[in-house]
Amino acid sequence: MNDPIFHVDHLSLEYRRHRRQFAVSILKDVSFILERGGALTLVGPSGSGKSTLLRCLNRLVEPTLGTVWFEGRDIRSFDPRDLRRRVALVMQTPVLFEGTVGDNLRVRPADAPGDFSAARLEAALAEVGMEPDFLQRDSTTLSGGEKQRVTIARALLRDPQALLLDEPTSALDPPNALLVVETISRLRVARGLSIVAVTHQPELVRRLGGRLLYLVKGRVEAIESIDEPGAADTRLQAFLAGGSLPEGARRT
């Protein structure tokens, strides 16, 4: 805990569509710390603000109050484009652009740094368990699981320090979901990635380990460790099923 990669400090977010409308509160005074190489899973009922909180970490969403510190720096002091290369996002529905898998891996702004040679692309594919001949495949011919793994490979090519996962498996069938879960947990160890994930997939929660953050109506209800096997498991199941705060979870 003495070397945090993320320090989320009293984050609140409200939206006001029109000046005269009431503000809708999405996040209320959210704070947490993620140590380098650690994992944190956000769980909570739908509409509780998990995806929004995740997007505050790479500044796709701007909080109304509070600060996110990344590597000891206020994220507002980064160029947002640079920040997003260091803090990659994998979304629920994989977005692939027109063209081949190779084209998709190479997608980047004109001035973006990095090695996008064929060898590097093949290595990135290998990291997500895909053969090099996928490079020539048209992106529309891939299965959902393959698409998701391509978006993960695309994120890896930017050498990110942290990975944000927004329900990366919920659009996939069970076998494909499992492949993605395996890919992510393997990468976490191999690359020493720090991970913040939103997921309802118990297998992914278990394999990531680290801590669970229960978010209910935009507020942190509890944070607990799940590294002792089995301890948080039954409570997590109950929470995912019922959406209520598990008994015994530490209140914050």
């Binding site: 790479n58 796709l60 484009r81 996002l89 529905t93 977005v95 980047r108 702004p109």
Partner: peptide, 16 residues
């Protein structure tokens, strides 16, 4: 919107 967000997340500018 997802496509826009995907591009932003890859380091593209808003305009791009």
């Amino acid at each position: 919107a997802d496509e826009v967000e995907a591009r932003l997340a890859l380091g593209f500018s808003g305009r791009e």
